[in-house]
Design a protein around this nucleic acid. Structure first.
Lengths: 368, 368
DNA sequence: TCCGATTTGTTCGTATGTATG
DNA sequence: GCATACATACGAACAAATCGG
């Protein structure tokens, strides 16, 4: 797959898919491509030849090579036969995503659609690759969980191209600010606020917060954590905010917590706000390992109400996440969007779910 | 029209049309054609390449160029349009299935396929519905985790129809005995044996076994449990075998265990063999609820080495399941099957994974 | 209408890599 | 292990079509 002509081919296809080259527009000449990719003319011709036979390009001797108008031609093959929705998530198999996917799959399946899955592993390159597939194969609709939503997205062009091609899409859990798409999210700031408020009301004053900051959810939950401190006029110790990203998620938070708990002084945290249940369970292990008890020595609040929160010997206090309900709603909204494609828009709107705290026994009133 | 490659092309086409070259018969090699027509290799390749993209010929590296079976070819126009694999599992979102699916998705995605998911919720009607879809939509291949594999399957006809239509399929985790399909499974009987043997070697004599018996895996693991007892000449208490099915899985095992632990006599179990980790975690809760400790008062062995086995305060002794490796292998095998569709079969074979016991701290030497 | 620069079309030669039998 | 056959890649040359001036 790493052949030179394939690289050239993919590059040309990308430009078509992301809208840089539009139907009937001339692409770079063979000589230009030779220089651009440092390959021989033969290689360039192999790549172009393949795309010509596949219907992506057409050539005219003396004039140049042009982008074919294939999008209109192919639309009829799929119109009534396919009924397929693409779901692009960061991880299909981890944590709460399976529940979301199942909710969507069940609803879509009932309504005669089927579901094709792609997981980006939180990687923009993969996200691009899948968006290309979605565009070229003309799915009927796309449900996307944005990859690294806290950062500006290099694939914005592809999303705009989806709009241009009138392929309905919506985003779940988070969305890229630049796009303002239809989305299903929860009020993560309020969620973070609820987590922290609960602990403050229980008398905790040294509350450490762990937040994954490469997606919007994490930064918003952190914002809620800060707001709760301000609202209740609890002074904030800057050392008690730990941020991490996906790559660091295995080691950094556990190490940081170990450090914090090791030095035993009046600043030692008595409670922990976690980005999610997965992290909470990991931190629980650290706490156990240091001979401390939850909730007697330290309280901990998770987020998402995942299966993990009920699995350990300490049932986690956590924030409810709609999960399969959100998946089902996503299925419903995407079908509505598909049906409404030709009509006047307006009715279909984004949904924001209200977070709700679920109190179990990982948190406890602080006694002096 | 008098280009050299056109002359070569016409010559080859003539031979095919007049029957000199028949379907799947090898045509002259590139070198032979070079000499025959006094042209360069490049020219020969141009001619052949064109005929390949038109579906007249196919090439195999190292073997030669062959006449295509054009009748069969017309049905799919497969150049790059489809490339979709269906995965039918019992539950897409629970337990170890997400890992298996991810393994498959990752591999298939790398190889230009995409994956469409169906979950039967262990229901034969849904399974039938999805098999119909697969057949009518002409997927390139199907990966199936059988629904209620311990029972005879009312959908056998559909699987036979897959074979008739030459849609490659394979089964994972279990297979229907009547079909003998290509499959990826583990040696569940040996797995059950290892679970039980481990406990017997630790001195346990009252070992209760919980098995889900509506799939083959459960019945085989039970067989292994029985065999271990026979091998080590440990008398078997019939009350110590608890079977349940999917519908009962929430309540029956926990209630049965409560009953067993309640009556405190010399027959009270000192160890538990579980159908899987999920059940083990549920039973752990029961044990905790009755004020008993694992592994001090009672030992417990899980199965599958799922994330659950590492989540609780007691890390489970369990049996390794290949999971994502199995998923990846499934992807590889199904692609092999697709590529081999036209050729002679034989090379591609089922895989049986050897189980391996992972000893953690939910089991302990029994002291009298 | 023709010219010349550009661009694609056809053809040759050569070399190395990789899969098959 | 070896010969065979296809796969990828470099280079060069000339032909034919297009297009702006």
């Amino acid at each position: 797959m790493e052949t030179k002509y394939n690289i050239v081919k993919q590059a040309i296809m990308s430009k078509i898919l992301d809208g840089t080259i539009r139907p009937n527009q001339k692409i770079s000449s063979e000589t230009e491509l030779m220089n651009e990719f440092n390959v021989s003319r033969h290689t360039v011709r192999l790549a172009i030849g393949d795309l010509v036979t596949r219907g992506w390009l057409y050539r005219t001797q003396g004039a140049g090579t042009f982008c074919a108008d294939r999008l209109h031609n192919e639309s009829n093959t799929n119109s009534d036969s396919a009924k397929t929705i693409a779901i692009i998530t960061t991880y299909i198999s981890d944590y709460i995503f399976p529940s979301i996917i199942r909710g969507a799959e069940a609803y879509l399946s009932e309504n005669g659609y089927h579901v094709t899955l792609f997981s980006t592993n939180n990687n923009h390159d993969d996200e691009r690759k899948f968006l290309e597939k979605v565009i070229s194969r003309q799915f009927d609709g796309v449900i996307v969980e944005p990859t690294r939503s806290a950062f500006s997205n290099p694939n914005i062009k592809y999303y705009l191209n989806l709009e241009r091609l009138k392929i309905p899409y919506l985003m779940i859990n988070a969305y890229y600010d630049e796009l303002e798409p239809i989305s299903l999210t929860m009020d993560d700031e309020k969620g973070g606020f609820l987590q922290t408020e609960h602990l403050i009301k229980q008398g905790h004053r040294n509350i450490v917060g762990f937040f994954k900051t490469d997606d919007i959810q994490g930064t918003k939950r952190m914002k809620g954590y800060l707001k709760a401190h301000r609202t209740y006029e609890v002074p904030l110790n800057p050392n008690h905010i730990i941020t991490y990203n996906t790559a660091e998620k295995k080691d950094k938070p556990t190490e940081e917590l170990r450090k914090l708990l090791a030095k035993n002084n009046q600043d030692t945290p008595t409670a922990i706000v976690c980005y999610n249940d997965e992290l909470a369970i990991n931190l629980l292990d650290v706490i156990r390992g240091m001979g401390l008890k939850v909730p007697d020595n330290i309280s901990i609040v998770g987020y998402d109400d995942s299966f993990l929160s009920n699995v350990s010997e300490v049932k986690l206090t956590t924030v409810e996440h709609p999960k399969s309900e959100m998946g089902k709603a996503a299925g419903k909204v995407i079908i509505d969007l598909i049906k409404d494609k030709n009509k006047a828009e307006g009715k279909i709107e984004s949904i924001v779910y209200e977070p709700k705290l679920i109190v179990r026994n990982s948190t406890k009133e602080l006694k002096e």
